[in-house]
Amino acid sequence: MQASKRIAFLASETEVAQAALATLVAAYGSVPLDRAEVIVALGGDGFMLHTLHGTQALGLPVYGMNCGTIGFLMNEYGEEGLAERLAAAEEEVINPLVMRAVTADGTLHRALAINEVSLLRAGPQAAKLKVTIDGKVRMEELICDGALVSTPAGSTAYNYSAHGPILPIGAEALALTPMAAFRPRRWRGAILPKTAHVRFDVLEADKRPVMADADGRSVRNVLSVEIHSEASIRHRILFDPGHGLEERLAHEQFV
């Protein structure tokens, strides 16, 4: 990438991100998204996910600069040498998950998730789920607080907090992880091929309501949820050399 690349700056609404936006636009200029060759997103991981979803149709690479907290998907914030950093940046490509959720009123809801799709109990009683993989029932009854399917990029987020496995970024795999499984009590989940189609059916939905969530976009009172990786959609994320997702995943496992 050459220094002459046209940059579109986007920022979250936080005071820190807005101050960074003003400083960087004054130093480097900013163009509208339809004229940009690269997007620089200022904020935290949540804003990075928002940016990737919102600019998906443009196919532009996104370089994040951390103005939030954890910043797993972001680079370190710095005002100097941005053109050179963009020129040296390494690209990672992520395929999102597609969620198709059917609610009690028969409505079909479709959403994309870069990190994970999760099902969560929405009442006082544990959820009761039937788990089907590629058309074959693998678990007739999973009683739990919830379950999720994670991409490698999302495996250090909610999935890791739920004691799921960290997946290498290049792995052709997905993580299926339960939250607080009651029965089977010691079931820890499964690693699935990236091509797997996962279906959850909610059992006793009236008594045990369940909600589904795809990267923060929630659907309540779901009866069934189907999840699969969508290879035709490619999110392009830029990282400083030596600080890409592969290194970050390794770092999470050895600190």
Rank of each mutant, 00 (worst) to 15 (best):
V98Y: 00
D213E: 12
A41G: 11
V38H: 07
P193W: 09
T156D: 09
A104L: 12
I143H: 09
P152V: 00
E226T: 13
G106M: 06
I39E: 02
T69I: 05
R85Y: 03
F239D: 08
T69L: 13
F200R: 04
E204F: 01
G123M: 01
I143S: 12
R100N: 06
A11N: 12
A36R: 06
G170L: 02
R186W: 13
E92A: 14
D240W: 08
L108F: 06
A22P: 14
L203I: 11
A205T: 05
E80K: 13
G43M: 03
M179E: 01
A57Y: 00
D206G: 00
Q253M: 13
A127T: 00
G164L: 04
D105T: 10
G244W: 01
A36P: 09
L119R: 07
P165K: 08
G64A: 09
K5H: 14
R35H: 11
L24C: 09
L142V: 13
A101T: 04
N115A: 02
A27W: 10
N95V: 00
A205Q: 09
T107A: 12
L82W: 08
A104M: 08
A126R: 04
L49F: 14
P178M: 10
P152Q: 08
P61M: 09
R138Y: 02
T23F: 02
I94K: 04
